[in-house]
Design a protein around this nucleic acid. Structure first.
Lengths: 170, 170
DNA sequence: CAAGATTGACTTATCAATCTTT
DNA sequence: AAAGATTGATAAGTCAATCTTG
């Protein structure tokens, strides 16, 4: 669809080839990952990420804004998801009366922790099947690095949290 | 959430680190790409891909099943999207009375081609901003290769079409 | 007004069921 | 029954508007 004389920085053949593969993968991978989680554990990847993020905090509790950064979601997306998870009894919200403006603390319940523990093995197997098994260990490293660099542009707070966690001990 | 004695192939620190980055990116990138296209061109990435796929065929026409593979979508997802695009006047469906069972041919209209042409510059700029600009050219190659390998598992028909296009001339 | 968070309306995808013809 | 495609109900995300407090 490109014309000849314009200021648009059209993609080179190499760039176009990479983008066509990447965008097709973006269109299919989330669906594939969600399908297994939904079928076997009644949650999607975003909800799993929310539960998993909370489970790694000693207190199993944090504020909505921090949880949004941890799980790479917008405030609105997180609010809707937390409402669903709360209905399942997997989470509890407790508005903090102090501070200005008021924040909301979210707690992972025991039932939520159990649901996460039950979901994890199947999810990990699917991640292996759909992602890791198809790549060499060098490519796994490349994919991680590339993903973190991209996150740094479109979700810098999430990128910073992931980088922090990665650099420490693990 | 892992326990000690089970058969689950838990992720190594390197694998976990890569997956955490990749999954967070999967959670944010489609949203970011869609936002620009929706705002500036009234379509999402999947719809753009459908139009772009058709535009590269000389006849600007193909069957639903082939278009589904081209655009990395399920039959149902494509049906819904094509219905929307047809309502906009960007596409036309013509059921083929011959053959068994009947197939449906989809045509890109002139208005559809114009809409694609109008959408392309902004979309390309956003792809550069969100993806290509943050990577070295070596990484761009790595991302393309990795994406194609992953597609080969979860969407083999799409992978084959992309590989075919890539290998020819371009 | 800004920060933290929520809400409702609208859009879009999935899943399962359906239709039609060979 | 299988292939090609569509449909409707439901689920989940976006966007813009809202509420509340300092």
């Amino acid at each position: 669809v490109s014309s000849e004389d314009d200021a648009t920085p059209w993609l080179s053949p190499e760039e176009l080839s990479a983008w066509m593969g990447f965008s097709a993968m973006l269109l299919t991978m989330p669906t594939a990952i969600d399908a297994q989680l939904k079928r076997d554990a009644g949650m999607n990847l975003f909800e799993y990420t929310v539960l998993a993020g909370l489970s790694e905090i000693e207190s199993r509790c944090t504020r909505m804004a921090n949880l949004a950064a941890l799980s790479a979601g917008s405030p609105s997306r997180l609010s809707h998801a937390v409402a669903r998870l709360e209905r399942q009894g997997w989470l509890e919200r407790r508005p903090q009366p102090e501070g200005a403006p008021r924040s909301t603390d979210v707690y992972l319940t025991d039932a939520g922790f159990d649901a996460l523990k039950a979901a994890a093995p199947g999810h990990v197997r699917e991640v292996r099947r759909l992602v890791l098994d198809g790549l060499t260990s060098a490519q796994i490293g490349q994919l991680g690095r590339i993903s973190r660099q991209l996150l740094d542009i479109s979700a810098p707070e999430t990128a910073a949290l992931i980088e922090r966690r990665r650099t420490l001990g693990n």
